[in-house]
């Protein structure tokens, strides 16, 4: 089992008001699964993704990643885990504006300590995989939204992570571009990659092999 959570809760404290974002999530994701996370706005989808991505820690409950209890890991081990085992795709792309597409894709490999040559070769390979072979040297401001998201996908897969988490990856794109992005996710899932993505769009979720519905911080189906 790649991901296993046991009754995870996350409560935000805004002023004196406690906002329960996750109210006990128990979830298992297997290696090679392609899952879509759906639910109304505010149901806790992003919060869950952050917890699964080790960017945030749950208020209570336990989380095992590859059978390792996340709560026992220190800062460096968590950074290592995010670097090697987890890939992130954000709704707003989050590319560094001053770096070329290729340099952006290289970032996770940089933190993994990969030598320059290898990094460049792998970045080229990844950009070719998402169909941006001829855009490698472009800066983000010279790319369309769809192209930026494809760079972000290439970056997420850089260190061959165990799982890629995508939070509304098509949220900022028009439907036609969104379909292209989903096709890329589809083919990457076909190749055996584990992918969890958040979406509001039923047709987008239709691409996934499993749909998890979240409401009020709980899994409803």
């Amino acid at each position: 089992m790649l991901i296993r959570t046991d009754n995870i809760t996350k409560t935000y404290l805004t002023g004196t008001v406690e906002v329960p974002a996750l109210a006990g999530v128990t979830l298992e994701i297997d290696k090679g699964e392609y899952a879509a996370l759906m639910g109304p706005s505010g149901s806790g989808k992003s919060t869950l993704m952050h917890v699964l991505g080790c960017l945030d820690t749950p208020t209570s409950g336990r989380y095992w990643f590859n059978d390792r209890d996340i709560s026992t890991l220190d800062d460096i081990e968590l950074a290592h885990l995010r670097n090697r085992e987890i890939g992130f795709v954000f709704q707003s792309f989050n590319l560094l504006p001053r770096l070329s597409a290729q340099a952006n894709v290289q970032l996770p490999m940089l933190y993994a300590g990969m030598p320059v040559r290898e990094r460049q070769a792998r970045a080229a390979e990844l950009l070719e995989m998402v169909g941006l072979k001829d855009r490698m040297t472009h800066n983000p401001n010279e790319l369309s939204g769809g192209e930026m998201q494809r760079v972000a996908i290439a970056r997420a897969f850089a260190n061959r992570p165990s799982v890629v988490l995508a939070d509304e990856p098509t949220g900022n794109l028009d439907s036609k571009t969104g379909v292209e992005i989903m096709r890329i996710f589809g083919s990457l899932a076909e190749q055996g990659n584990t992918i969890i993505l958040v979406t509001h769009d039923q047709s987008v979720a239709g691409h996934a092999r499993r749909i998890i519905h979240l409401a009020d911080g709980k899994i409803v189906s």
Binding site: D75, I76, A79, R82, N83, L96, Y111
Partner: peptide, 16 residues
């Protein structure tokens, strides 16, 4: 700040 957040999400340690 956002860049720092992103770098950390991509695996930068506090020390990096």
């Amino acid at each position: 700040t956002r860049e720092i957040g992103l770098r950390k999400a991509l695996g930068a340690t506090n020390q990096d």
